[in-house]
Structures are given as C-alpha cells and as structure tokens.
C-alpha cells in the first residue's frame, strides 16, 4: 500500500490496516504524539478503528523532551 507520510511517499505492508498498526509498524506507539489522516486529526482513543487506505496522506508528529 502506498502512503504519503509527513509528505514523503512510502510503501507499507498491506496488513497495516489502521492507525494503531501504522504506529506499531514505525515503532511509535509508546510515544506521545498526534496523527492526522487526510488533514483530520485522529482521536487518540480511535487509533485502532481508523482505517488506513491506499494513497492516504498521514502526518505523524511526536513530542520530545530535549531542549
């Protein structure tokens, strides 16, 4: 499946069917962050229910502590 993640085209396995699985795929599920799918923020409690489909535009931003 082809996705645009933070503006970059990426191919992810077809078993990455929702936002939770996508974050798992990038090893980001234990980080505090915000996910936007096609310019709409996905509620944190709904990551497992929000489907990811071919050519979706996904923004993933995670918070860091350094400074």
């Amino acid at each position: 499946m082809k996705l645009f993640i933070n503006g970059e085209e990426m191919i992810v396995p077809d078993n990455v069917t929702n936002v939770e699985k996508l974050l798992d795929y990038f090893n980001l599920n234990n980080k505090a962050g915000i996910v936007e799918r096609n310019q709409v923020i996905v509620d944190r409690s709904l990551h497992a229910e929000e489907s990811v489909t071919n050519e979706d535009r996904i923004e993933i931003v995670h918070f860091v502590g350094g400074g």
């Binding site: 505090a32 860091v64 502590g65």
Partner: peptide, 18 residues
C-alpha cells in the same frame, strides 16, 4: 490537551544526540 498522558522515557539528547 495535546499530549494526553506524560510519556515515560522516550528520546532524549542522551540517546539520540542533538
């Protein structure tokens, strides 16, 4: 509101530099 819960650990200047 943005953060949800305070994350435990995570990347720092310690682990990934800056």
């Amino acid at each position: 509101c943005l953060l949800g819960a305070v994350p435990m650990g995570g990347e720092t200047c310690d682990t990934v530099g800056i």
